[in-house]
Amino acid sequence: MITVRHSQDRGRANFGWLDSKHSFSFGSYYDPEYMGFSALRVINDDIVQAGAGFDTHGHRDMEIISYVLEGTIKHKDSEGNVQTLPAGEFQLMSAGSGIYHSEYNGSNSDTLRFLQIWIQPNELGTKPGYQQKNFGQENGLTPIATPNGRAGTLHIKQDAELHQLILEPNSSLNYQIKPGRKLYIHQVKGELQLGGTQLREGDGASIESLDFVELSNKNQTPTTALIFDLP
């Protein structure tokens, strides 16, 4: 079964310096039908104005992934990490027993756009951690985060995997789904066909009780999506 969450149906919060679209309930946006999917709790599509950002605040027991779409993030946390994340980069912060951090737009002239993703961990009270990497723009599936950090992926504290999908025009592949697993697909750029279902930018699709899903790009421009393989 494939259930689509269209981009225009997402929650919205606009504070002037921040314009955010919420795939799931977050902050003042509450929808009991969209409280997350499996261990996936948050996907926020954030646009931050030049020179603005999130002041120092705390988290605990959450795996927090940031994926920069446009601009640059300036990151600082209580574990001593001071980093810059340019467009195309992934960051995984394991909040564990508790961490404080700030995230700012690294430019005084250009906007920042990034996806903020929260995944609930299967280990609580662990030591906080920080990872960051650019995985490139290869065609096909590229593993980004895995439970064991295999092959240079980010090590996530959950039985979950995150993949980057890039499909060139008029190409397709089949994603095999292991028994008992679920998928969530967030469409980042372009259009993607899931069998007979179409996703456009900002759409999401939850996938349950299927053995595989055919992923196709039938358009004339490349498409990019994130695929969450979940328990």
Rank of each mutant, 00 (worst) to 15 (best):
Q49S: 12
D19G: 05
H186L: 07
T3N: 08
R41D: 05
K218Y: 13
G58Q: 01
D110C: 00
K218S: 15
G106E: 10
Y130A: 14
T72G: 02
G71K: 04
L124Y: 12
D203N: 09
E123I: 13
I185A: 02
F135V: 14
A50C: 05
V48G: 14
G129I: 12
L69W: 03
Y34T: 01
L18Q: 06
H6S: 13
D211N: 13
Y29E: 11
T126R: 12
H101F: 03
D159I: 05
I227W: 00
G149W: 08
R200P: 13
T146Y: 01
S97V: 03
E208H: 02
V68D: 03
K182W: 08
Q193G: 04
I43M: 01
D19K: 10
D31L: 04
R12H: 15
L141P: 04
H163P: 05
Y175E: 04
W17Q: 03
D9E: 15
K127A: 14
Q120P: 00
G11I: 00
N122L: 11
I119Q: 04
N81Q: 14
H186K: 07
L85S: 11
P231A: 10
E70Y: 00
E103L: 11
F90C: 09
V82H: 05
E168N: 12
R113D: 00
I177V: 14
K76W: 03
S171K: 11
V213G: 08
L40A: 07
H6L: 10
H59N: 08
Q198S: 13
Y34H: 14
G53Y: 04
G80Q: 08
L230E: 04
N148S: 11
H75R: 00
S209D: 15
S172C: 04
E89C: 12
H6V: 14
S38T: 00
Y29T: 00
Y67M: 01
G98C: 04
L192T: 15
G53D: 06
P121H: 07
I43L: 07
R5I: 09
Q193N: 13
M93L: 05
S28W: 02
N14L: 07
Q8S: 10
G80L: 09
G140W: 01
H155L: 15
A151Q: 11
E161H: 07
G98R: 00
A95L: 05
D211A: 05
K76L: 06
D211H: 02
N44I: 09
M62E: 01
A225F: 06
L194F: 10
I185R: 01
S20F: 06
Q8M: 10
H6E: 12
G88P: 04
F26M: 14
A95F: 02
D45S: 11
R150M: 14
H186E: 06
E79G: 08
G190D: 15
L230Y: 10
Y67G: 05
G16P: 00
Y184G: 12
K178C: 13
R10T: 07
L154Q: 07
L85W: 01
G11W: 00
N122G: 12
F135H: 10
D110S: 08
G96S: 04
L115W: 12
K218M: 14
L199C: 10
S7K: 02
T153L: 10
E123W: 02
Q158V: 12
H6A: 12
Q198D: 11
R200G: 15
A205C: 05
K21H: 14
N148H: 08
F24I: 03
I207K: 04
G196H: 12
